[in-house]
Design a protein around this nucleic acid. Structure first.
Length: 668
DNA sequence: TAGAGACTAAACAGGG
DNA sequence: ACCCTGTTTAGTCTCT
């Protein structure tokens, strides 16, 4: 009642989320990256200019200068490319084509007019990589030089102060250190933001090693672990941190709540902002937003969502953003604990990056084995016009691009074509039942769906059936079905009224669901024969299917949050003609057919207990179950629960599906 | 463009 | 009266 009505009110969220999505989509597509980039560096400059009074370039300015320099070099590079276009001996026809067509027009323009996006379209991925790596190395070098300079200066100051025999108050000394450290941290932040911006614009696709390189060098130069010691070493124990917090507090209180969302975090916990990949799904969901939140959702914070603090392991409830900011300042100030947590988080991210690299490699091998020719260079030249926001109108999964961009066009497991359309509860018409086998998909991505607020790309009917079949006696009450939904899918922990209604509707509507009066009440069972009838006899090679096939190849081993992270960068690719043009589609068809046919869900879902083709005995047995559930419960072997993903389910089932899918379809 | 499938919303009824 | 369960209808969207 209350819950229902409450959720009913929440229901309006999706529709509004669509609006948000479109908004962010605009921002993303129409130069949001550039906006974020300038904004990021802008805030950085605002922050830092005050602290640098020695006439030298502030860190922010230095970085800004570096960015400009990078752009200049890139432009020159482009001009060179444009002038040397007469040699179409490039191996990659696509790349050469894009390099030939665009630069000619681009070269007519003033080089300064080139935007990163344009460069991205013009340069081939390797070129971009090389270029940006070069620039990053340069930046790094200069930053380190700057750091050394600052350090020397500081030492000099300290020496002179000591020699002067006037023991400067500890606090003053500490404040100097503090300011210096702040500058360094801001440098890191700015560098990070710069890289993020570049990545966000698709200019950089850092391999894990590459990503960890530049990003880590500075933290190593100014090791985060040293920070607390620095704080404590120079000033009174805890005092500097307190001061800094107070300062931030002043800033926070001084600025409107709208401004706090962005001004506060980097300053309050610099080391945190250095790793904009906080843990877990919530952050993944919001971290993309954080780049533009100051533009569209001023009242948000990457570490704040659903009324609670998303700091790893915190989950403190905060009523509003202001309270959260307070909480952030008090509980997550720059101290040993926070620093340690950040380091842990950093390691988590690195591990994920490594894992991603491995899984990507595996995927490529798999796809290559299946003749999908995946190892083609990523079509970077494809303008990334399909914003992730379009793909995620609900704004739920907005993975950060700060992590290494996926090498292969991956997508989150659960996001079939359906999610491409409306996302959220919006129309997600899809050939869901043709999607990858729900059972294996669920088994492999169980954790993903469980944690990520992503709508599963399955129909209600298939989900209900799955829920029922997962139980030993193949029957569930309505409430148990509800519970299964909420247990298995984070998505269904919201909007309860909507999907529960849909579940009931599906149960009643589809003949494949049979209601059986039990002793305790009514239970629902699945009439597999009817269910199979629902399946159309033949598949066609629709793009949807191909997409589903791609998702069906699945990435079960991937961490859920990282899978979500993969989603964003993969969607544009999936939608790009380069990936799914008719030609490639046709080449994919055979496999897609197989895999898509795999939705012979009974096959994989029930493994041993439910043969691929439902033999009449099997069917009758199921009918029996309905009538005598208790009895059947005993002689039925509890089939491999899909909810508990078994490792074996990830491999063989696919093969089996591939083999038996066709005959299965003839069933109907 | 029509048809089918799917989703959402809502109304209604019966039982506890 | 309220809630849950179940049925039914209607509108809409997407895909073929």
């Amino acid at each position: 009642m209350m819950v229902e009505s409450a959720s009913e009110t929440i229901r309006s969220a999706p529709s509004s989320q669509n609006g948000v999505g479109s908004l962010s989509g605009q921002a993303d597509g129409s130069g949001g990256g550039g906006a974020t980039g300038t904004t990021a560096s802008g805030t950085g400059r605002d922050v830092t200019t005050g602290t640098d009074s020695n006439g030298e370039m502030s860190p922010a300015e230095l970085l800004h200068f570096q960015q400009q320099q990078a752009l200049q070099v890139a432009r020159q590079f482009l001009l060179q490319q444009a002038s040397g276009l007469s040699s179409p001996g490039n191996n990659d026809s696509k790349q050469s084509a894009s390099a030939v067509q665009v630069p000619v027009s681009v070269a007519m323009m003033s080089p300064q007019m080139l935007t990163p996006q344009q460069m991205q379209q013009i340069l081939s991925p390797p070129q971009l990589q090389a270029l940006l790596q070069q620039q990053q190395a340069l930046m790094l070098q200069q930053l380190q030089e700057y750091y050394k300079k600052q350090q020397e200066q500081l030492h000099l100051q300290l020496l002179t102060q000591q020699q002067a025999g006037k023991p400067q108050p500890k606090e003053a000394l500490g404040n100097k250190q503090l300011a210096f450290q702040q500058q360094l941290l801001q440098m890191q932040q700015l560098q990070q933001q710069h890289l993020l911006n570049l990545q966000r614009q698709g200019l950089v696709s850092l391999q894990p090693s590459q990503a960890s390189g530049p990003l880590q060098t500075l933290p190593q130069a100014v090791c985060p672990t040293d920070l607390p010691q620095l704080w404590k070493g120079e000033g009174a124990p805890g005092q500097p941190a307190e001061d800094s917090v107070k300062q931030e507090g002043l800033d926070l209180t001084g600025t409107a709540a709208t401004a706090t969302s962005f001004a506060a975090p980097p300053k309050v916990s610099p080391s945190l902002s250095h790793h904009t990949l906080p843990n877990g799904q919530p952050t993944v969901l919001t971290s993309r937003r954080d780049s533009s939140s100051h533009e569209e959702t001023p009242g948000s914070h990457p570490l704040y969502g659903h009324g609670e603090c998303k700091w790893p392991g915190c989950e403190t409830l905060c009523e509003d953003l202001g309270q959260f900011i307070k909480h952030l300042n008090t509980e997550h100030a720059l101290d040993d604990r926070s620093t340690a947590q950040c380091r842990v988080q950093m390691q988590v991210v690195q591990q994920l990056e490594i894992q991603l690299a491995k899984e990507s490699e595996r995927l490529q091998a798999m796809m290559a084995h299946l003749h999908m020719r995946p190892s083609e260079p990523k079509p970077f030249s494809q303008p990334v016009t399909v914003s992730a926001a379009d793909s995620f109108p609900d704004g739920l999964v907005h993975p950060p691009t700060s992590a290494a961009a996926p090498v292969t066009p991956l997508r989150p497991p659960g996001l079939g074509s359906a999610s491409l359309h409306g996302g959220g509860p919006a129309r997600r018409r899809s050939s869901d039942k043709f999607c990858s086998p729900i059972s294996s998909e669920l088994a492999q991505n169980h954790e993903f769906y469980k944690n990520a607020d992503v709508r599963p790309p399955f129909t209600y009917a298939s989900l209900i059936r799955q829920a029922i079949l997962e139980t030993p006696d193949r029957q569930l009450t309505l409430n148990e079905i509800y519970n299964w939904f909420t247990r298995m899918f984070a998505y269904f922990r919201r909007n309860t009224a909507t999907w529960k209604n849909a579940v009931r509707h599906n149960l009643s509507l589809h003949k494949c669901f049979v209601r059986v009066e039990n002793v305790k009440g009514a239970v629902w069972t699945v009439d597999e024969r009817e269910y199979q009838k629902r399946r159309p006899p033949k598949m066609t090679g629709s793009p949807t299917l191909v997409k589903n096939m791609i998702s069906g190849l699945s990435y079960g081993a991937l961490n859920a949050s990282y899978q979500a992270a993969l989603a964003e960068s993969s969607f544009p690719l999936l939608n790009s003609p380069g990936m799914l043009n008719p030609g490639s589609t046709s080449s994919l068809l055979p496999l897609s057919h197989d895999d898509v046919g795999a939705p012979l869900e009974p096959l994989s879902s029930n493994g041993s207990s439910s043969p691929p083709r439902l033999s009449p005995p099997q069917y009758s047995h199921q009918v029996q179950v309905k009538e005598e559930p208790a009895e059947a419960e005993e002689d039925r072997q509890p089939g491999p629960s899909l909810g508990a993903p078994n490792p074996s389910a990830s491999g063989p089932p696919e093969d089996r599906d591939l083999e038996e899918e066709l005959p299965g379809e003839e069933l109907s």
